[in-house]
Amino acid sequence: MNALIIEAGQYTPKVVLKPDEQIFCFFGNSFPVNPTDFYQPILDWFSEFFKSIDLTDELIVNFDFDYINTSSSKQIAYLLMFFESLTAKDKILINWYYDPNENDMLETGEKYLGYANLRFKFTDKKNETPIQIALNLI
């Protein structure tokens, strides 16, 4: 399965999906007017990816957003619902980053936690090495 790397746009997040290195990350802002155009190919990619593997180890999907608009949050909900539909869903861990000084992303993450039947980890950005550095993505 080929990696999918999308550089950050003016309204769209950077996306790094590298199965060989076990890296699955979203970071930045997401407020395109038509988020479906942006997220559908990502959903398609995950769909192909999970068909191609038999998940035995834990797979961490990192979400490190600064801001997402409501229509993007809907697309992310669809992505989480897709993860939820997988038989190996318990192997998936959603690692949700938040800035403790700004409640928005924590609240958004908690909304997902309350509805999606997936494992969540909330990571305080302040106490962690920034994800881009930790994963050597810069």
Binding site: P35, T70, S71, S73, K74, A77
Partner: peptide, 15 residues
Amino acid sequence: LFDTNQTNNNSAGLG
């Protein structure tokens, strides 16, 4: 948020 019956064009409610 998790209502799949809604199309994206219909997201004004969420907004």
